[in-house]
Design a protein around this nucleic acid. Structure first.
Lengths: 358, 358
DNA sequence: ACCCTTTGAACAAACGATTGCTCAAGTGGC
DNA sequence: GCCACTTGAGCAATCGTTTGTTCAAAGGGT
């Protein structure tokens, strides 16, 4: 029973007798375990699955467990899923895969789901809105719930999730009426970045803002402004420019801000900060001697920039984990309480920040 | 039947009569479709599933299709999978999620699987070798096959895949005896990078090599060397340093190579090239006026570096697509032919390369 | 010694789809 | 008008689990 595409298996090969040893290769099912243990499959099931409430003689229990071990038994998830009306699988929908924040969240979600015996189906939500990823996943009982990291606008997302008819948890965004979400505390992130810059003596600090109206963008701006005011530095709208989330946007915003002669810049993301750095280089400004730069969120790429970028590290992986835990609680019928925004893990001080020029 | 964690659904709410409208919310099953169409479920199944070989009256067929549409029917994948002994799901195992090459391959694989009605289960193969990801996925009939982008050494990987007992396709690596793999043509990538540099007049071109013994590392080195010799430039081992795949490694290798006064550098990856660029900056060398830099593989981060990095674009997404197509062919019983290494998509010439200094 | 309770395990019916087989009605040849 | 054959659709078994129910044996109280 050598299947296509599998490794040629030494053990499996044709035996001296000329037959093919199949016993080893066939996946054992519950009835095999039961037969080997000399019990009914229902008994075997109860042993392997059963809570303590089940009445099974100790000796029987051990015999079944031993048989399962011998046969390397693993329950068929399709059968079990069909019977129990749950697939033990979640879907995770992300707008991009190469975004380090989402990569890290997926990583965390995978850890948590694995820990609880769930699997993670991945889907990418491109701009092609031909059909709904959410429905595609929930339909056909493929998943028990969804982890949603969408950038779609509220109305569209709301409609699609409603059609999906499945519990879900939002990742790093909010949606009115959607009960469960795990978000990063972007405001606090911006605040500690500003604290760091102010401690270095900076007072003219520019901000490369995210998409206006965006949930996190608003939080970051609020953090920026709040921290400045807390330090007795007035908020100056001229020091804020919209950069969106691309390097190009960051560069463009930085170009506008150059005239304001900031001594430091807070980017809404790593990417915009990188775009800004390129503009500073081009303008002949030294980082950090002339201008300090901080990016929000930490990722390996921060260490690839020149100079290496100081960032605020955010618990993105933990966000994924918590979201998955929350979703597990939901589908298992518990009613978890809301999770507060996750505070930053602190600053990662690299080479892009230094004392303000005198 | 409002479930936990779902959106409050206006339509679903309590009706004037005081009951809960459930008809809309329950997922329709085949028997519902059959009942509505006034046929047996077997007939409904044959209409929805059946190949042209089935004998169904046209009028009946249309009635069933109409009912399915009305009820928004989607077959329960668990039931179908159980019956047909296939889950219509693949697992994809990657060593890291934040590596753009893998991210892009996942993206491509997802596209291809989606196109054919398969789903993609994601798993991360960390260094914690406590248990086998491969077995975890294949056991329990969760997946019909695996896409494997592992960096494990041959022996370990071979053992784990053998135990998994499931067809698989390797992504960007080879394994003796493993019949199916889709790889990038790293040699050709190195070659066109060298061609580009030579065309710019460079003759002292250094190479930041990958992990010695690594499949792709060897290919890249061969391409580097072959192209140089083709251009009548002798291969000088002193111009090659092992950088591995980290920015730190790239920096370290570049530091060693500085003494050789190369006018251009070919990095094995984006990451090592970035590490090298930092060292060049520190040494006060101008890119590209003093030293040109090329990285292999293209990714958004290339445009975030300063100066923006010239790269060789590789069809990483296509690699994922082809691998998935191959795996689909395998599990559907066809015997696809081997796929030749995927040639580069060409150079992306940015700001990090320029004419050789005179 | 009898009856009732507890214990431990088997029996059997689902879950929702697919598919081999059966079978009634319709068709055509003679 | 009879028989064989085709057509179209239903019947029923099956995939591998889980779980409500039944049932035999053992145990205990009187």
């Amino acid at each position: 029973m050598l299947r296509n595409g599998m490794l040629r298996n030494g053990i499996l090969g044709v035996t001296p007798a000329g037959g093919v040893r199949d016993g080893q290769s066939m996946r054992a099912k519950l009835s095999d375990v039961a037969r080997l243990a000399g019990v009914d499959v229902s008994t075997a099931s109860r042993v392997l699955r059963g809570e303590a409430t089940q009445r099974i003689r100790q000796e029987t229990r051990e015999r079944v467990l031993q048989s399962a071990r011998t046969l390397n038994y693993a329950p068929n998830q399709l059968a079990r899923g069909l019977r129990m009306a749950r697939s033990a699988t979640f879907g995770i929908v992300v707008p991009q895969l190469d975004n380090p924040v989402f990569a890290s969240a997926i990583f965390g979600a995978e850890k948590a789901t694995l820990r609880h015996g769930y699997s993670l189906l991945i889907a990418h939500r491109g701009s092609e809105a031909t059909d709904s990823v959410y429905q595609r996943m929930s339909h056909g009982n493929r998943v028990d719930g969804l982890l949603v990291a969408s950038l779609d606008d509220d109305r569209l997302l709301r409609n699609e999730l409603e059609a999906a008819q499945v519990p879900f948890v939002l990742l790093n965004r909010q949606l009115a009426d959607a009960p469960h979400a795990v978000v990063l505390d972007s405001r606090a992130a911006a605040e500690i970045a500003i604290d760091h810059l102010v401690a270095l003596g900076h007072r003219r600090i520019a901000h490369l803002a995210g998409r206006p109206g965006g949930f996190n963008a608003g939080e970051r701006l609020a953090g920026y402004r709040g921290a400045l005011e807390r330090h007795g530095i007035g908020f100056d709208p001229a020091l804020v420019a919209v950069a969106g989330y691309t390097a190009e946007g960051g560069a463009e915003a930085m170009r506008q801000l150059l005239a304001q002669r900031p001594t430091a810049v807070l980017g809404a993301t790593l990417v915009t900060a990188a775009g800004a750095m390129a503009v500073l280089h081009e303008a002949g400004l030294q980082i950090p001697q002339d201008v300090s730069v901080v990016g929000l969120h930490d990722a390996p790429v921060a260490a690839m920039l020149y100079p290496q970028l100081t960032t605020v590290r955010m618990p993105t992986e933990r966000m994924g984990e918590l979201a998955a835990d929350l979703l597990i609680a939901l589908v298992e019928g518990r009613t978890p309480e809301a999770i507060a925004p996750l505070p930053p893990d602190g600053m990662v001080i690299r080479a892009s920040t230094g004392p303000a020029p005198i």
